[in-house]
């Protein structure tokens, strides 16, 4: 379904997000550029503190400013200039142009209203429909995310449902206005393993069916391998590498991506020591000079510590920021 010739649906250029603090500002995102084409699925992989979630919160204008300071050379989503968006454009942007689902479904719903109420209010925030018509639509949506007793779930309160059920309901709510892009921020991390696989399959199916763009934000390379077309690897608030998913797994070019892949447990049988990445993620209020990964990189030299590596284009849809690229 992807159409790389067309105008990108999301364009991010040199995005920077800073949270000023008394002792040194936290520089969560430090110059991120990327694009998403209509109907395409993009995986954004990174560990905590990599800036992966914050970038997309900024795209949805969900960071409270202050404290957040957001700057970007360009930030466009479905034709909306995000930074300049006024009230009506924001309503258009959120929910209709792009919808977002979050990590912990247990805290994502207002505890004092029913699931149905919360889906219906979403529909009615974007379209003038009667409550009755919106309820019928909500019922449809719940059935679409494979909830069997949809009628009962509609009248349930969040605390009465399991995490997996709530995540399905959240997806239904996100899809209620047929968004052009679905941003899924660690949508399976808080769920049980067997439920995780089901939710991933559901998101994939719905993306195909509705032809929407998908941004899958995750720490888990396995999730990326299962769901997306293209991957951006982030570290220390920057993009380290970008590649089509097959190429990324077959030929990772950035030392961080490679280290990450070999450190995943359970790839081979037998009890064994894993290849670990020494050290810890950089402190976002005091990021290292040069390449953010150099203190943990086995190939780093003086240049890596002194100068920031430029983003090098390695082929169609492939780029990486590293001095030691071979």
């Amino acid at each position: 379904m992807k159409d790389t010739q067309a105008q990108p649906i999301v364009e991010i250029e040199d995005l920077r997000v800073t949270f000023p603090q008394a002792e040194g500002s936290v520089r969560a995102v430090r110059g991120v550029s990327l694009a998403l084409h209509p109907g395409e699925s993009l995986g954004v992989v990174g560990e905590s503190g990599s800036g992966k979630s914050v970038s997309w919160m900024a795209v949805m204008r969900l960071l409270r400013a202050p404290p957040a300071e957001v700057e970007a050379g360009r930030l466009r989503l479905a034709g909306i200039e995000v930074m300049q968006a006024r009230r009506e454009e924001l309503t258009e942007l959120r929910g209709r142009a792009a919808a977002m689902i979050f990590q912990d479904p247990m805290t994502a719903f207002d505890p004092v209203f029913t699931i149905g109420h919360q889906i219906i209010e979403t529909i009615r925030a974007h379209r003038a429909t009667s409550k009755r018509a919106a309820r019928a639509e909500a019922l449809d949506l719940l059935e679409r995310v494979e909830i069997r007793n949809a009628e009962a779930i509609l009248d349930s309160y969040p605390h009465q449902l399991s995490g997996g059920m709530l995540q399905r309901a959240m997806i239904a709510m996100a899809l209620s206005c047929r968004p052009q892009v679905l941003i899924a921020d660690e949508p399976t991390t808080a769920l049980d393993v067997t439920v995780q696989a089901q939710i991933l399959q559901l998101i994939k199916d719905l993306q195909d069916e509705m032809g929407m763009g998908l941004v899958m934000i995750t720490h888990d390379l396995g999730v990326v391998a299962e769901t997306v077309d293209r991957v951006v690897v982030m570290y220390g608030g920057k993009v380290m590498e970008e590649a089509p998913v097959v190429e990324l797994f077959e030929d990772p070019r950035h030392p961080y991506t490679r280290a990450l892949m070999v450190s995943i447990p359970g790839q081979e049988g037998g009890r064994r020591r894993l290849t670990e990445i020494p050290g810890a993620s950089p402190d976002p209020s005091d990021p290292p000079e040069g390449c953010p990964f150099h203190p943990r990189c086995t190939q780093a030299d003086a240049q890596c510590a002194a100068e920031e590596p430029p983003m090098a284009v390695l082929g169609p849809g492939r780029r990486a920021a590293c001095w030691r690229l071979t």
């Binding site: 067997t194 696989a197 089901q198 396995g222 391998a225 097959v246």
Partner: peptide
């Protein structure tokens, strides 16, 4: 088997539609 089946496969070429 369900638990094993839920482990993501680290090879995008081996993607398959799953049933649960």
């Amino acid at each position: 088997r369900a638990l094993l089946d839920a482990i993501p496969v680290l090879d995008p070429r081996q993607r398959r539609r799953r049933t649960f």
